[in-house]
């Protein structure tokens, strides 16, 4: 089987890093963000709380994808993204 061992090894580093970050991110959501009560109003406050928590989750997701993006570009593409020159 003609595997590209270098690519698999680099992707393994990327996947394991992203997996670890993802678990930490979900941990922050479950342990810190989840129990937060920003509004005590039982009706509308519930939706406000949900919206704020969704925004925090969105920011964490974007940060996660940004780190993923940087890793792939550093490991596989040397120059700026406009050039996308192979290593």
């Amino acid at each position: 089987m003609g595997l590209n061992h270098r690519a698999v090894a680099l992707q393994l580093i990327i996947f394991v890093t992203q997996w670890g970050l993802m678990i930490i991110g979900f941990g922050i959501l479950a342990a810190v963000v989840g129990p937060l009560r920003i509004q005590s109003d039982p009706s509308l406050g519930r939706y406000f709380d949900a919206a704020v928590k969704a925004m925090i989750a969105l920011v964490l997701s974007i940060s996660w994808l940004f780190i993923w993006d940087r890793q792939v570009r550093v490991y596989f593409y040397r120059k700026r993204e406009d050039i996308a020159e192979p290593v």
């Binding site: 941990g27 989840g34 949900a50 969704a54």
Partner: peptide
């Protein structure tokens, strides 16, 4: 939602 290591959190709206 069940989260590894950190337990779970309830998302009735989201």
């Amino acid at each position: 939602l069940q989260v590894p290591i950190f337990g779970s959190f309830h998302l009735p709206v989201i």
